[in-house]
Simulated scan of single mutants.
Amino acid sequence: MAQILRPSQKCLRKSLFTSIDIGLSLLLLMPTTALADGNNDPPPQTTGTSGGSRGCETQPKPSSISIPALILLAPSQIYGQTSATRPTFAWFISNSDSWQMEFRLYEYDQASKQSKLVKEIKDESFKSSPGIMMLSLSNLELLVGQRYLWQVELVCDANRPSGNPFATVAMKVVSVKPDLEKQLSQSNDILTKANLYNQADLWYNTLEIALTSKDQPKLRELKISLLEQIANEFETGLKEEIKVELTKSTIHQLQR
């Protein structure tokens, strides 16, 4: 994975009524992969991983350990797709201590390349735990056909926000095609539904089932496959280490 440049924190912390120029605020890798539905519609330049490896740790780590402090469990080079208007967001925390977190969801305009903050969570009880964290937003309904950016930040030092690890990825809410909708309605088997979502490239739907369902062998295989896709975005020396850390992680569910 190429070295990632840190975007401007100031640009990504503006209020609900302020537009953000993504082209200037996210000076990261330029994705070129087309969407699964065939549209050549690349997302803004984003990354699903925080820069650096130490994160908020109070003690220095051995130099051989370089897993990022924060990894968003979503594709970073394309729009991760979901058919859920209330999707679940998931990320991995490598830091062993508990730190204040902040979550932001932006509505993105593909034509103007501008984004607007539509949801922010930064209350005192919103804190990190080592492992995989899953966030469900029950009071917010997203729009089908709309693109979004979501971001997680670890607040190491509120007085030095530029040093906080954070990561951002793009997401698109899509409608369910009639054939898929029919297949889903005809099945009560959770594994079948997960496989149908996976075949339709509905990342968020698939991941939610894989992470929250009972540890059936086939669902575990699917979970490992999804997490391996995340690990594969890293350089060769880190892939296997990150895969191991992700697959053995404790899962923490949050509701807001």
Rank of each mutant, 00 (worst) to 15 (best):
A74I: 00
S185P: 04
I78T: 15
Q255L: 11
L143P: 00
D41W: 06
A2I: 11
S136T: 15
V118E: 00
M133V: 10
E233T: 15
T250W: 04
L26Q: 08
G237N: 07
S63I: 14
E124A: 14
L29K: 13
L105W: 03
T88S: 14
K177L: 12
W203Q: 06
W203S: 01
S125D: 11
S76N: 09
K113A: 08
T47P: 00
Y108P: 05
A170I: 10
L16C: 05
A90D: 00
A200M: 08
T82E: 04
D37V: 10
C156V: 07
C56M: 06
L227Y: 03
E124N: 11
K119L: 15
Q45N: 15
Y148L: 04
P7L: 02
K223I: 02
S125N: 14
P44D: 07
L202Q: 05
L184W: 09
S19M: 10
K113L: 07
L238A: 07
L117R: 05
D37W: 10
A2V: 12
S53N: 12
D123N: 14
K113N: 12
E228I: 05
Q3L: 12
A36T: 11
R13M: 11
G48S: 07
E208W: 01
C11A: 08
D215C: 03
Q186G: 14
P165D: 06
F17M: 08
C56I: 04
L117G: 01
A200Q: 09
N164D: 15
V118F: 03
D37Y: 14
K116P: 00
S96H: 09
